[in-house]
Design a binder for these strands. Structure first.
Lengths: 118, 118
DNA sequence: ACTTGACTTAGAGTTAACTCTAATCAATAT
DNA sequence: ATATTGATTAGAGTTAACTCTAAGTCAAGT
């Protein structure tokens, strides 16, 4: 069980952001007797997954959608599968685009090398 | 020579965005006798490059920086090389991160498949 | 002559995703 | 006993990158 500060530290995000994710219904932490948020190992795992989705450009709105499917339970498994499969296509498209850009940069950089070494 | 509308169509961005890039000093189009913007082939090529940088998450501020180096001329070639080399490192880091995410998604999706097919 | 559509400008509005502020409270450290 | 630390809330502010609005000019088509 972690406090909001510990959780933020562990994940490398701010406590502010954790409260924002809660407001967006992406995560629902427990509360201790004093009313403070408490995060379990399974909350942490879920947040790490959310952060991975974020890093790969999934918008908060889609993450929210996925989170709501998880909350709805077992019978949404197929919907979740489809959502992730769709996102995987987007991730692969991003990789392709970045590889093209990498090639272009290699070429540009080589031109500048020729220029500056001449 | 293209009008702003033609250029926008060619590049798949809006005329508004082209004016915005001009305000940010990323591009300086010519003007016809009526004062309307005119874009040459070389403007188009430059804009295509700018769009590639954008797609690969280079912030407008950095693109602006690069554009100003280009304007300054030959003697900034080494600075430009360094800027692009730095960006290439970022592009490669993005590719790496996306490939990890792709693996994770493959795993998650496989789990859901097992679940929904059982 | 009139309408249509593209262009001009300065500047306001939008969206996503935070990020911070203010005012307050509760537990711990000196 | 007081000071610090870290938590709480609602709601305001920020940043990047557009995106649009208003008010207007101008050329071409009917």
């Amino acid at each position: 069980m972690y406090t909001i500060g510990e959780t933020a530290g562990l994940l490398g995000i701010s406590a502010h952001t954790l409260r924002y994710y809660e407001k967006e219904e992406i995560i629902v932490p427990l509360r201790d007797t004093g009313g403070d948020r408490r995060y379990t190992e399974s909350h942490i795992k879920w947040l790490q997954f959310v952060i991975k989705l974020k890093e790969t450009q999934m918008p908060i709105a889609s993450i929210k959608k996925y989170a709501s499917l998880v909350t709805e339970g077992e019978q949404t498994a197929l919907d979740r599968l489809n959502l992730l499969a769709e996102h995987q296509r987007s991730v692969r498209a991003q990789i392709q685009m970045l590889q093209d850009a990498d090639g272009m940069l290699t070429f540009k950089i080589a031109s500048y090398r020729t220029l500056t070494e001449a």
